[in-house]
Amino acid sequence: MAKIKKKIKTIKVDADKCNGCRACEVICSAFHATPKYSSVNPARSRIQVITHRLKDIWLPVFAGEYTPAECMGRETYVIDGKEYEECGFCRAACPARDRFIEPDSGLPLRCDMCEDDPPQEKPLCVQVCLNDVLIFEEREEEVEEEENLDVLEVGLKSLVDKYGFDKLVDTFARMSQKGE
């Protein structure tokens, strides 16, 4: 594949500053509601704060790529005397757990950096985090051109993985005949 110049957007997480308020989850779900800001539901949020209060763990994690199958990794990491499960860090929407999965449809969620028209100055979670836990960074990089799936495609791809292409097409055809 050809190399292209691409704007890379990242959010740096300074977890030591996190107070665990979950404002990021609230605003993420509101921003991605249709119409925008019409509803709130942190279970739909593409950022989730992994919380074990008495263990002093507050760790914001963003939804990354969807994975059709769970991995073998069940390591535990000890950082600053605190024990984290590998799953805690993982950004994948994964069948092993209900994180980053739409509560109604079961479809995977992925952080889209609040791509919007007109564009937002920063992702919404960064905007509402008044304690600067989340720092937005943008840089240009040369990367391999890749297929960029939108949310609908990611969802459909997960259904293909789960049920197979034929079954999905059949169901879709049946549903469109019924006018559902």
Binding site: A30, P35, K36, Y37, S38, S39, V40, N41, P103
Partner: peptide, 22 residues
């Protein structure tokens, strides 16, 4: 534990006022 939606009647307008509060 809850995973349902709470709705806002005029969400965009609500957020504009919240921006002032912020």
């Amino acid at each position: 534990r809850g995973t349902k939606d709470v709705y806002l009647a005029r969400g965009a307008e609500f957020m504009e006022h919240m921006n002032d509060v912020t």
